[in-house]
Amino acid sequence: MATSAQEVTELLNQWARGNQTAGEKVLPLIYGELRRIARRSMNRQDPSHTLQTTALVHEAYMRLTGDSGRHWQNRAHFFGVAAKAMRHVLVDYARARATDKRGGPHKPLRLEDAGVISGDRLAEVIALDDALTALSKLHARQSQVVELRFFGGCSVEETAETLKISPETVMRDWRAARAWLYRELERRDADEHRNDA
């Protein structure tokens, strides 16, 4: 049973409001669409097609909902969802890539090959996701700032607009979150290697 464009829009809206189940339903669709787009760009005869992450998300969003963004009440709504989607897709993807070393006969297309993310960033994405989840338990807004800026590619102004805070607050949050994440990533890395020894 195919999901109609309307249902997808509704799922995305629900997910933006915090409904995890809706997110679980719509995520595979987004991922599928991203892969389709990436595959298309791989097979294109002209290899010089631009494939930026945010444009990718936008295109995937449009194709899924048949909506060119006109119905978003404001851009903020879209950015929030897109950043979350991008984070989930990339992290899911990075985790899947990390666990399969050999791979079976039917492996999905590699996003690295389509230029969406470079292969050496995948491990970082996983570690970051864990650290970010830990941060969100301490300071939800700081975690959102990082999610919007890092996964969503939002500028400081766009982040401020999305979260309805001032750009100065965004910068303060960003700086604090960054310092904390740095320590957290370091600590996790040290833990990992202690276990290896």
């Binding site: 930026q52 993310i117 960033r121 890092f150």
Partner: peptide, 19 residues
């Protein structure tokens, strides 16, 4: 020390692409 961390969003990394 964390100045370099997360300094650029992922999209910018992928932005070293044609165009």
């Amino acid at each position: 020390k964390s100045r370099g961390l997360l300094e650029k969003p992922l999209a910018a990394l992928a932005s070293t692409v044609p165009g």
